[in-house]
Nucleic acid binder design. Structure first.
Length: 218
DNA sequence: GACCAGGCACATC
DNA sequence: GATGTGCATGGT
């Protein structure tokens, strides 16, 4: 297995430190984590801008808003009816269980908090882990579609199947380091979004699907 | 016009 | 347990 740290260093050199998550507050990280589900970040930015303009980027405003009103504001992020209800479920959880500034979560272990997040409707493994790492600063490695695709293309996946197995793969091959987890995931997203599309066709540039120079992979 | 984007829940077999 | 489907916008 190629040294994962070496891969990280190569990415860091190419893309520079990513300074993630792209949000102004920890609450905004949580909102973004729902909005970005299966959605390009540029569309999430439009939705976040709408919420900010409406002064609705806070728990109270979201909880007091009708679903239809919330859906209209987040429309650019797609799946807006679905995400409006998911957003309310998450904000209700954060507000009532986490309290002001989510401070009450401090007394709860990583695994217990992860279980509680996963019990919220609309919060799956990636959303929960993004919130744990980027908003709550817990040492949890986030897996997403890019991470899996890149691992498979590079042949470092060791036959992993499913979210949990990929997460174990990265955790067992990396030192436990929140800052490393933070930036490595961000680097993988940068690589994925730039060079690693779902349909690679060039045998010489397997990470670049639009290259037509060297023929098509079977 | 087809493809893609930082998933998830639910139905069906 | 595995697989398929609905949810939807905006950029390339």
């Amino acid at each position: 297995m190629q040294d994962l740290l070496q891969i990280y260093k190569t990415l860091l050199k190419h893309f520079g430190y990513r300074n993630w998550w792209p949000a102004r507050t920890n609450f905004e990280v949580c909102v973004g984590a729902i909005l970005t589900q299966n959605t390009a970040w540029r569309n999430v930015r439009l939705a976040l801008a709408n919420l900010r303009r409406a002064e609705a980027l806070n728990p109270e405003a979201i909880l007091n808003m009708r679903n239809e009103e919330l859906a209209e504001l987040i429309r650019p992020a797609g799946y807006y009816n679905l995400k409006a209800s998911r957003l309310k479920s998450l904000v209700e959880f954060l507000h009532h269980q986490g309290g002001r500034g989510m401070r009450r979560f401090a007394a709860i272990s990583d695994s217990e908090l992860r279980q509680r997040l996963l019990s919220v409707k609309g919060v799956g493994p990636e959303t929960a882990d993004s919130i744990l790492l980027y908003a709550l600063k817990r040492p949890i490695f986030v897996i997403d579609a890019y991470t899996i695709r890149i691992s498979q293309r590079l042949g470092i996946d060791e036959g992993c199947d499913g979210y949990q197995e990929f997460q174990s793969l990265f955790v067992t091959h990396l030192p436990l380091d929140i800052d490393l987890y933070n930036d490595f995931h961000a680097q993988l997203v940068s690589l994925g979004a730039t060079y690693c599309k779902p349909r690679p066709i060039c045998v010489q540039c397997p990470l670049e699907p639009r290259c037509r120079k060297f023929g098509v992979e079977s």
